[in-house]
Design a protein around this nucleic acid. Structure first.
Lengths: 136, 136
DNA sequence: CTAGAACTTAAAGTCAACTTTAAGTCAAGC
DNA sequence: GCTTGACTTAAAGTTGACTTTAAGTTCTAG
């Protein structure tokens, strides 16, 4: 499989594939005439990476539990640790977003002339602060 | 009020204040000996901007409904439109995060040897795709 | 009066995950 | 054999919200 086909099947771009390789998320494949030729297993690997990024892991986190360079903790516990950390983040994000939602709904129901009034009237100061402001 | 005091009171840095000024989110204040002197109203303004960014608006969106350059739609409707668009995003983010949460919990309960097995065993292919992958 | 903290500017750097560019090489179909 | 599309590289660009840097100016306390 050439890079274009792999990219198409994984629904991302060829340059993204090369980028994953450079980051060490994907093994450098055999080459024919300088061009990359992938075994079918590569697709599964790429899809796993996509899946993990969709779950909110960063590429360097993914690298950690895919080929765990750096420390000597085995894959299982390492993944488990990262995943439970991520779970906390996700939960925080949920509660933050729920707050946000009712806040926005409140502001939309409000008929103040200016936003400043709304904000002070509804005294929505900032119970928003300090919650993980990024699920990516 | 000098910039350092304003920054401290708004809990951000002096350079961020200058940045807001450059973006047009904050009026250029009077100067004494080249240094910025802010009226007390400036604090409220900065806090409003912080509040809006906390709600997930980008600085350029905030600029739009603060001093709406560009179009001639009055502030009320403009804010309303942006806010309801944001509300949709937030709702999408919530449902995405809820899926993520149960996914992670499922994976954590699973005792497969490798993540690949887990993923295929739980057939968690990607019902995750296509949901707003950014609440900022 | 002077040390040093706080201010000034424009421009460059940061992070993540890629994309784009430029300039060139290879492969497949006719 | 030639065209054309797919591939190759390294380096620079993108986005958003700032921060950092460098070099210089001003304010303030003692």
């Amino acid at each position: 499989m050439k890079i274009g086909e792999l990219a198409a099947r994984a629904n991302l771009s060829a340059s993204a594939i090369r980028y994953y390789e450079k980051l060490g998320l994907l093994a450098a494949p055999q080459r024919i005439g300088g061009q990359r030729r992938y075994p079918s297993g590569a697709l599964q690997r790429v899809l796993l990476v996509r899946f993990a990024t969709d779950m909110g892991f960063t590429l360097s986190e993914i690298k950690l539990f895919l080929n765990g360079l750096g420390d000597h903790i085995p894959v299982g516990p390492r993944w488990r640790k990262l995943a439970s950390r991520k779970l906390v983040e996700v939960k925080q994000n949920i509660s933050r977003s729920l707050k946000l939602k009712s806040l926005l709904q409140g502001l939309l129901r409000c008929h103040c002339a200016s936003l400043e009034f709304c904000v002070t009237r509804l005294s929505l100061s900032s119970n928003l602060r300090g919650l993980s402001r990024s699920n990516r």
